[in-house]
Amino acid sequence: MCLGIPGQIIEISDAENLCGIVNVAGVKREINLHCVVDAEHPVATCLGVWVLIHVGFAMSRIDEAEAVRTLQLLTELGEMQQEFEAMQRSEK
């Protein structure tokens, strides 16, 4: 359900109607930015922002810090696993 993919807003094509161009791995398309624009985030701040795209609409701003945190956690988990294994090996 609900194919959504990340893309970066590279141009505001129609500020009045909240439309912008996104780039997904070199493929470009005009999308609607309504869902990622509010009083705190005016349309002008959208440039360069990564969004999650679904059926021609930007549905969510992707939170870089959260993405980094998720990956960081996985890296740490990997290190913990390695230490754990090393411990087990030395016990044997």
């Binding site: 993919i5 990340p6 970066q8 997904v24 791995a25 990564w50 992707i62 993405a67 990956l71 996985l74 890296t75 988990l77 990997g78 913990m80 696993q81 390695q82």
Partner: peptide, 20 residues
Amino acid sequence: MKYVDEFRDPDKARALLQAI
């Protein structure tokens, strides 16, 4: 692709699978 490829990294999967 940013925000896609990083989340398909098999090396990170290994640790997760062990933890699971």
